[in-house]
């Protein structure tokens, strides 16, 4: 066959590698920048922290491998214990923002003249910086000129120094944190209430549901997505409670208002700190606590998606 010697003028064009795998590859290409930065700034540092927590390092000289000694020290460190308990207190009491936010949202969910203004006033604390919130509350609690003691004086109660008393200080700071957090939950619930189906309310009303029963059986189930988001942001907010503590008490008096994140900062990065390994060990513990919640959030979101 002579034909075979003639070069084929129209060979079946081999598609490029990309063209052949376009469907599979494209999502990864779009994800690549995100994955890259997420890995460099989040995933890798997590493992670096794990690694660093096994060393004694002052940030300047040579890092010395000491195994689990940092964790052993944590077990007997009373300041760590105090911080851990304070974290638990934050997680428990910060959640009060959810019912409080719901209550205010229900209260504001009506049509009155100027309701927008009232809503914005209630939302205001969430807009201002945490630093300002901390300062305002520090003045409010101030034992010499604070409004709190003046108000307590009116009803004949003695002056108290909330931020100077190791038993009260954490609750005092949580109360300050609840102010903006309640506003946040309120706005989430207000949007949720907009989406409540009026027909269901109507049906409930025909069946004689009123007041609390209406709220519990008809409204709240429809607000479930909002409640979930409120829960997520409140838990995250509680675990991130750093700025308020730094502004209001600087961890004091004598370290009784520290939480893990603040203690980690003090040990690793503050003026007298620079025990990087020990700070990393605290960070690992904090990470493990967060991991419980993160796992729960991911699991419920995953379940939600499968449901639809």
């Amino acid at each position: 066959m002579t034909v075979a010697t003639v070069p084929d003028m129209n060979p079946p064009r081999r598609k490029s590698f990309y063209k052949r795998n376009e469907i599979a590859l494209t999502p990864w290409l779009f994800l690549a920048p995100g994955i890259l930065f997420f890995a460099v700034y989040v995933i890798i540092p997590i493992f670096q922290s794990f690694n660093l927590s096994l060393y004694a390092w002052d940030g300047l000289g040579e890092a010395r491998y000491i195994g689990l000694a940092n964790y052993q020290e944590l077990m007997t460190d009373r300041a760590f214990e105090v911080s851990l308990w304070n974290n638990v207190k934050w997680l428990a009491f910060y959640l009060l923002a959810i019912p409080a936010g719901l209550f205010i949202a229900l209260f504001l969910n009506q049509t009155v003249v100027g309701i927008r203004l009232y809503k914005s006033l209630f939302f205001f604390p969430f807009v201002i910086s945490q630093v300002v919130v901390g300062l305002v509350f520090a003045w409010f609690y101030n034992p010499s000129f604070g409004l709190l003691n003046t108000a307590l004086g009116w009803v004949g109660l003695g002056p108290i120094n909330v931020l100077g008393d190791p038993t009260m200080v954490t609750y005092g700071i949580i109360a300050a944190g609840l102010w903006p957090q309640t506003a946040y939950c309120m706005i989430l619930y207000l949007t949720g209430l907009n989406a409540v189906d009026p027909e269901q309310i109507e049906a409930g009303r025909l069946d004689g549901a009123k007041g609390f029963r209406m709220l519990w059986h008809i409204i709240l189930p429809q607000l479930k997505p909002a409640t979930f988001i409120c829960f997520v942001v409140t838990i995250i907010g509680a675990l991130r409670s750093f700025d308020l503590i730094s502004i209001m008490t600087n961890g004091g008096p004598f370290g009784s208002s520290r939480v893990l994140s603040f203690y980690m900062f003090e040990k690793a990065l503050s003026e007298y700190g620079f025990r990087m390994g020990y700070g990393a060990a605290i960070a690992v513990v904090l990470f493990l606590i967060m991991l419980i919640f993160i796992a729960y959030f991911l699991w419920s979101m995953f379940r939600e998606e499968r449901g639809h």
């Binding site: 100077g164 004091g252 008096p253 004598f254 370290g255 003090e266 503050s270 003026e271 007298y272 700190g273």
Partner: peptide, 17 residues
């Protein structure tokens, strides 16, 4: 030393209260 100072000053404050 920094670490001693940090712990000690906390103790001093606690002692004063």
């Amino acid at each position: 030393p920094a670490e001693m100072a940090a712990e000690a000053m906390q103790g001093l404050q606690e002692f004063m209260v």
